[in-house]
């Protein structure tokens, strides 16, 4: 019943019946998003835990395996994600200032950057598949000294895979945001979905900020 589910025009935004004021409704939404982000952090946290354990056990194998990741592609993707974070932050800002067209443009750029990210990821993945650099039982690459490179690639594929799924979900949400924005639903009076999505997108970036050095740079 909250105001968000009606295709309301900008000036039709109403505070949901159970909130005292627009401020309270905004804060509630933001707090909800932050609590959701906590679950995301702990979800990825499990993988970081697995990474920590196996890296400490198989240090040499991890270092050896990480040389098979493409550092340049990883770095480019990092830059792409940081840029998309900037455009998303600016999209929230322009929504706050009721610049509807600019908001659409910035969300569009963010969407385009996420496509770039996934394209690069696709090339990386297909390279790994080709070389047999796969998790566990399917690890067929040759010329490794250690026996546990498969574990490294298990962690690599789980981490980047789940991260990639988050990017995909983010792209779907961006299309949804674009549609709503083009219908003029967002303005300085009401932009909670843009802001909430922005927080999600920054978190996806934040996870990558850790994934990149751990997997690509130091192994």
């Amino acid at each position: 019943m909250s105001a968000t589910d009606k295709p309301a025009r900008e000036n039709e935004f109403q505070v949901a019946h159970h909130f005292d004021s627009a401020d309270v409704q905004f804060d509630a939404g933001r707090m909800g998003i932050w609590l959701f982000l906590v679950t995301e952090i702990l979800l990825f946290g499990g993988l970081f835990c697995a990474f920590a354990v196996f890296r400490s056990w198989y240090y040499a194998d991890f270092v050896e395996a990480h040389h098979h990741l493409n550092r340049v592609m990883g770095a480019v993707n990092t830059v792409v994600l940081i840029c998309s974070s900037l455009t998303m932050a600016l999209a929230v800002r322009s929504a706050q200032m009721s610049k509807t067209k600019l908001t659409s443009l910035l969300i569009g750029v963010t969407l385009a950057l996420s496509c770039v990210f996934l394209t690069i990821k696709f090339f990386e993945y297909s390279h790994k598949f080709h070389e047999g650099l796969l998790p566990g039982r399917y690890f067929t690459a040759e010329g490794f000294h250690g026996h546990h490179a498969g574990i490294f690639f298990a962690v690599y594929f789980m981490m980047t895979g789940i991260h990639g799924i988050h990017i995909l979900i983010g792209m779907g949400l961006m299309i949804w945001l674009l549609r709503r924005n083009m219908r003029g639903e967002f303005s300085s009076r009401y932009y909670a979905p843009v802001e909430g999505f922005g927080l999600y997108w920054h978190l996806v970036d934040l996870v990558w900020i850790y994934l990149f050095p751990l997997l690509y740079l130091i192994g």
Binding site: V15, F19, D20, A22, D23, F26, L90, Q96, S188, R189
Partner: peptide, 17 residues
């Protein structure tokens, strides 16, 4: 305050850049 508008806190562009 019901119905009073939410006033966003806008940061300057330079901060983002």
């Amino acid at each position: 305050a019901h119905g009073k508008d939410h006033v966003p806190h806008v940061l300057p562009l330079s901060t983002y850049l």
